[in-house]
Design a protein around this nucleic acid. Structure first.
Lengths: 204, 204, 204, 204
DNA sequence: CATGAATGAGGCTTCATTCAT
DNA sequence: GATGAATGAAGCCTCATTCAT
């Protein structure tokens, strides 16, 4: 039975990945179930053996995406070393880098945003987004608090707020890069980080 | 004839505003033309006297929105006074404030994002977004450069990058607030600004 | 406005009649909306301007049918004259006759029966059937009671029961005729009526 | 091999009974093969080892039903004793009784009726119905003819017609009871029978 | 100009049936 | 023989768009 369960799970993931690709290319409403079936190399009806509806599948793609990002980010963070400033800057580079590598998935995020505001499942989407952002903020704020604790950053810094802003900044720089090929999120982020870190550091 | 033209223009705007409301409530694809007609108090066919298609109307809503935001922001900025730091902080408050006031329109932006990545008109959407962001960055970077020129900010600050990051931060804090009712973008933004401005300022 | 309403009603009836024809030929589930549209000479989507769903249309056909039968029967009964026995026999002839004339609609009734037991709207179907039978029984029992009041029939006859049985008998003889081309509902009904009326009449 | 054949037959009957239950609950088209498999406690594919198609299975259910009714009725009739009148009345009670006991199967009959008028196999259904009714009429008419031969009933009574009508009456009273919970087929049938038998009996 | 009744292309979903295991 | 995962034909319904009034 466990073998069967595993196979079933693998097939679900297979479909989800095929769907992710098509959704990323065409967006949710312009995507047709038949396209996903073709992409996954299966019959149209088979999708419904694994997912209840198009929306259900879309949400599964969303969850898979959130999970994937979460795992990758945690791996990235755990690999960091050095002072808090160095780790922040390294995280900055690492994140921007990894996101630039999966540019083709930006569309998905925008579709997720739209789904979180107008889909019938908007509650579920919002909830998952909320948790994802929350987790990400905690990772970053822990890093900043660590800098404060070490005496590297000023003690009057509001770690939570700065973390929230940073998280948002990464988001938004990539968004601007998405709109503007001439925009260099990498350079922009570095310049910004150096200014921000200047503001965080203890003056003496 | 000019009178007629004016009337025509007014009716277009009327339809656009009605459409904006409905699109904001239901998103693009779940919105049906009939709803817009009802909201505008006109016949379904009349919409097609003013717009070529649903997408065309949606793009008109987008343009109207971008224009509206642009005007409001410029007005807001031109009203600022004081030192560069003070003006940045005032702009921060002002922007967050004004956006919180039109929460019901967030949905629209997310729909615009989605449209800019998957709609048939994605080129047009991306272009308008690019220009909007660019304009906004210029406004903010001018403010920062002014601070540098006045000797208030450090001369090695990259005004463009910081501006880009700030613009993105506002975007993204509001997004996080959209997902999480417990998230206070106002307080977060202020804390963050004070840290950032600390990093911008000349040490002496 | 009344003109428009009238036109709308006429079109509804037009669709109902087209649908009745197709449902009678193919039954409910083998009937395809497109067939009805073709039969009615309209577009597929137009049906949905007048009816919510296939089931809704089917129920409308049912109601139209019940109404039609009701009206025809009342007309038939009101035209009867003579003694109670004569009127019963005349009604017998008249009903069998009229039903034989619309043989092509038998299928509909059987579909209605099936719908009343397994359709999602079975409650509504059962209710309408109940009322239809009830009305029919009242008509016949009134006739029999009249015969009792006139002293033509025995006073210990249970008019309601006999009416119910008679109504059922007509139903069932036609059903048997439907199954068996060699079965003559006309002759059978007459023989039976004479025996039954013999049992109703006062002996003296 | 005979053992295997018997086992095969038993399994067929098992499936038929499971199918009968599901068809009775949901009707033909709303029934899905998977439900039947679950009810029978077997795999979906197994049904196709025993029956060619859904329609084929449905027809098998029909035949099983007709057979079952036929056997039960013959048993019932053979148990009757007394005068012809008494046997008719006893048969009346017995039939109504037994049908009331299997109310949950009425739905099946209505489905069979519908199938006999619109299914692809309507010829076969009609044929079986014809034979079933014919057999039933013969049973009843034999009873009546016996009454005539004994000098209990009038010799000018048309036994065939009265039998046909009686058979139909039972059918239709149960149908009316199906539609109307307040309708008492038992009492109605008895009152009717007494009137009818009065018309059959010799006056002297 | 304004309208809304009519349209039909198109998509999601169901489910009887097949067939590899 | 038994199974149930896979299939794809088929059908209901939606809705952007048209056009006669």
């Amino acid at each position: 039975m466990t073998v069967k369960d595993r196979q079933r799970k693998e097939k679900k993931v297979h479909i989800v990945q095929a769907a992710a690709k098509v959704f990323a290319q065409k967006g949710f409403s312009r995507t047709v179930m038949a396209d996903i079936a073709v992409e996954a190399g299966i019959g149209k009806g088979t999708i419904y053996e694994y997912f209840d509806s198009k929306e259900d599948l879309f949400f599964a793609v969303f969850q898979w995406f959130v999970h994937k990002i979460g795992v990758e980010t945690r791996v990235r963070v755990s690999a960091l070393g050095g002072s808090a400033s160095e780790r922040l800057e390294a995280l900055n580079d690492s994140l921007i880098n990894s996101w630039l590598e999966m540019e083709e998935l930006y569309t998905l995020i925008m579709e997720f945003w739209a789904a979180s505001s107008s889909s019938q499942m908007k509650g579920k989407f919002k909830g998952a987004f909320r948790e994802g952002y929350s987790e990400f903020r905690h990772i970053v704020s822990a890093l900043i608090r660590d800098g404060i604790d070490r005496g590297e950053f000023r003690s009057d810094v509001d770690a939570e707020s700065v973390a929230a802003a940073l998280v948002g900044t990464w988001d938004a720089l990539l968004l601007q890069a998405w709109f503007d090929d001439a925009f260099d999120p990498f350079a922009t982020a570095r310049s910004f980080m150096s200014a921000l870190i200047g503001g965080l550091k203890k003056e003496w």
